[in-house]
Write a protein that binds this DNA or RNA. Structure first.
Length: 451
DNA sequence: TGTAAGTCAATAGA
DNA sequence: TCTATTGACTTACA
């Protein structure tokens, strides 16, 4: 195919808005007559009118830059309006599982940050949006799925063989499930709040821990090293994504007159995005996986979310053992520390604070390498100091601590209205962080992990 | 070998 | 029943 031509048409195809779908609200779509036989899912590329000869990969490769945030926003609207679930949409249109779809829709990465593979779902979504009939097809599929399910249910018991279910090509129809035997599946590991807190604290001090550090962490937390490794990988990755979202949201707001973005649920500290924390420091490329940036951001958001909630409990638990917990967290070196390597344990400069106990270092202390088994034990030994545990009031007062930079509490204190001062503050904090990091880096202190 | 990106799939919560 | 979260795994890359 002649590239220029196809690219052009492709551009149109992919970018063209899809008014039809937008208007199809409230699931009023009429029953479609034909069973959306369609797509065989997953790998099965959507048929592109006029471009059927192109594989999704080719489309992706030639696709112009797409507005991933806008696409997901529209998809969410369409799915919601038509009462279509993520599972069905994901499995039939994207070839992804529900969890992946949820994640994708909630935290889309900017186009330029996506790999070819990562762009695929967005191209599929855009293509799907482009053809209003697709919604109908999906709704048909949903109906058929339901029917098949009912059928199966009723006829089931005796004849386990259901009707080939819908033509939908959805393969989750039990029949095929190879589920033969047993699952030697290992049970899913669920980290206790205290463990997460401890890991977060460790992360704050050293986002890229050495194998040795990981080993120590694993030992002290009584976790498998692979679990610790995975946790760091996942945490870094998710933090990055949080940052992207914030950037997008912030960008959107400042630009195109705040395209509201309902999805902005993730909308935590909107103000903290782009400019701020990154100010000066990361001026260049916030989005970059630059540890520093993301991390920082992330903390605010992560804290806001996860910690916010569980923190309470965690802190409670920890509180007893460690009253002060407080602030712990943040003090640490911010993310910027990333590769800087050595622990900034001391760095926590931060807190010359009133009581040393509040300093990160201290808070992150877990009595001697003894493995803590029970939650109780953990609570006892791991000073979980959920950022949130520190009362907003308190954290607010520590104006010079890094807390303001990473903790959500800060956000709580300083409302949007104080954006400016906040930004300045953050910028100042970042500067001090950098300074400390530099110092720490040149310092060569042994790293010690204590939880 | 380590990290990032992308996903899966179990599970918690609404 | 659906969505969000998250530990684990796979693949690609430097």
């Amino acid at each position: 195919m002649s590239s220029s031509e196809s690219v052009k048409s492709l551009t149109e195809l992919v970018q063209q808005p899809c008014p039809a779908i937008e208007t199809s609200k409230e699931g009023k779509l009429q029953e479609a007559s034909e069973p959306a036989t369609s797509d065989p899912q997953s790998t099965a590329p959507l048929t592109l009118s006029g471009h059927s000869s192109l594989s999704i990969q080719e489309l992706v490769a030639m696709s112009p830059e797409l507005d991933t945030y806008g696409i997901t926003k529209r998809v969410k609207e369409v799915l919601t309006d038509n009462n279509l679930g993520q599972r069905l949409f994901g499995e039939t249109i994207l070839g992804l599982t529900q969890g992946s779809v949820s994640d994708l829709l909630a935290r889309p990465k900017p186009w330029h940050k996506l790999s070819l593979k990562g762009r695929e779902p967005f191209v599929r979504m855009q293509l799907w949006l482009n053809d209003p009939n697709n919604v109908e097809k999906l709704m048909d599929m949903k109906r058929m799925e339901k029917k098949a399910y009912m059928k199966r249910r009723h006829s089931s018991v005796s004849d386990s063989q259901p009707s080939e279910s819908s033509s939908a090509g959805i393969d989750y129809c039990q029949g095929a499930s190879p589920q033969p035997q047993h699952q030697l599946k290992k049970p899913r590991v669920v980290l206790a709040p205290e463990e997460k807190e401890a890991l977060k604290r460790a992360y704050q001090q050293k986002p890229y821990p050495s194998p040795k550090t990981i080993e120590e962490l694993a030992t002290q937390l009584n976790l498998k090293t692979s679990t610790v490794i995975n946790w760091f990988h996942n945490y870094r990755s998710r933090i990055r994504r949080e940052l992207f979202i914030e950037e997008i949201q912030a960008g959107g707001q400042s630009q195109a007159g705040a395209s509201d973005s309902p999805s902005a649920r993730s909308g935590r500290v909107a103000h903290s995005s782009e400019g701020d924390s990154c100010d000066g420091v990361d001026a260049d490329g916030p989005a970059d996986a630059k540890p520093g940036g993301p991390e920082a951001e992330e903390f605010s958001s992560t804290t806001a979310k996860s910690q916010g909630g569980r923190a309470a409990s965690a802190s409670d638990a920890g509180e007893e053992a460690l009253p002060d917990a407080g602030s712990g967290e943040k003090p640490d070196s911010p993310p910027g520390s990333q590769h800087s390597g050595e622990i900034l344990e001391a760095a926590p400069n931060c807190a010359p604070e009133e009581d040393a106990s509040t300093s990160v270092a201290s808070t992150a202390t877990l009595p001697g390498g003894r493995p803590c088994r029970s939650a109780e034990e953990s609570a006892e030994r791991i000073p979980i100091v959920p950022s949130t545990s520190s009362t907003p009031a308190v954290s607010c007062q520590r104006t010079n601590s890094l807390e303001s930079l990473f903790s959500f509490s800060e956000a709580a204190c300083s409302k949007n209205t104080r954006d400016n001062s906040l930004r300045k503050k953050k910028a100042a904090n970042l500067n001090s962080i950098i300074h400390r990091l530099e110092k720490a880096a040149s310092r060569e202190e042994p790293v010690e992990w204590e939880f």
